[in-house]
Simulated scan of single mutants.
Amino acid sequence: MPPYAQSVSTFWKDRLAPGPRAAALPPVQQLLGNLSVPFDLARTKAQAAMLADGMRGDGRSILLIPGLLASEQRMGWLRDILAAAGYDAHDWGMGRNFGPKPDSLDRIDRCVDAIREKSGGPVTLVGWSLGGLYAREYAKFACAKVGGVVTMGTPFSGDPRANHAWRLYQLVSGFPVDRPPFPCTREEKPPVPTVALWSRRDGVILPECARGRAGERDRAIEVDCTHMGFAAAPEGIAAVGKALEAIRS
């Protein structure tokens, strides 16, 4: 083949070669399952006292960090049940989560310091979805202040696009999903006890990305709920109680 023909052949071969394999996504049927959240909330309201009685709160300070576009109100039932169980549960105090900002970890640090001024001890972070990524990265930034991290359906492992939320994340936050505006090593385990809650029927996050691999978290607990159910369904809230006990032991 003449040199020119070879160069043309190489030109088209490079452009027609398949690109990176598209990330696997949860089935659409499971994504639609998240529409059950009103029924999950109704069940949690009916079972709130039983859920609190089933936990062994020890007075530890807990900071709840909501997921993308969620607010403190969305974490309300979880907060109130943890408080009724004997935990010192706190909202993050930053309103709705519109995605990471350059000062997000600094703002969490100020919140943790305010809690520690009253409690005097480390704070356990419980983060739902994107909030769990904040929790993990903050625990690397200030591990001496953190007693442990619980993530709920948080995509800290694998492909950051293996979910149905990454385009919304980029639209809302203005940052690429693989380049947040603060130092982030998603798969690196924080130097504190960590428990990952995950669900086969999450529907938003690919289960293996929320479960993580050995070395990326200390323990993984499977939960029978949808992604929205982690902070709304009785099964999700009870699992947080189990995770907190696992960190304590």
Rank of each mutant, 00 (worst) to 15 (best):
P66E: 07
G67T: 09
L68K: 07
L69I: 14
M75S: 12
G76Y: 07
W77E: 14
D80T: 10
A83Y: 00
D88I: 00
W92V: 01
G93Q: 13
F98C: 00
K101T: 15
P102G: 06
D103A: 12
S104A: 14
L105T: 05
L105K: 08
D106P: 00
I108W: 02
I108V: 15
D109V: 00
R110G: 15
R110H: 13
V112F: 11
V112T: 11
V112L: 12
D113N: 14
A114W: 02
R116W: 09
S119I: 10
G120T: 13
G121R: 15
G121F: 02
G121Y: 01
T124E: 13
T124N: 04
G127T: 02
W128T: 01
W128V: 01
G131D: 04
A135I: 06
R136N: 05
Y138M: 05
A139V: 03
K140M: 05
A142W: 02
C143S: 15
V146R: 05
G147E: 11
G147M: 06
G148A: 12
G148F: 12
G148I: 12
V149E: 11
V149I: 11
V149T: 13
V150F: 10
T151F: 03
T151Q: 06
G153M: 09
P155A: 09
P155T: 05
S157I: 06
S157L: 05
P160A: 12
A162I: 05
A162Q: 03
A162G: 14
N163P: 03
H164R: 14
W166T: 04
W166L: 02
R167T: 15
L168K: 08
Y169I: 00
Y169R: 04
Q170N: 09
L171H: 12
S173W: 01
G174A: 06
V177I: 15
F182T: 06
P183K: 08
C184D: 14
E187V: 09
E188G: 00
K189A: 15
K189W: 02
P190S: 11
P191N: 12
P193K: 13
T194Y: 06
V195W: 04
A196N: 15
A196K: 03
W198P: 03
W198T: 05
W198E: 04
W198Q: 07
S199V: 10
R200P: 00
R200F: 01
R200G: 13
R201P: 00
G203F: 03
G203D: 05
V204F: 14
I205E: 04
P207D: 10
P207K: 11
P207A: 11
P207N: 11
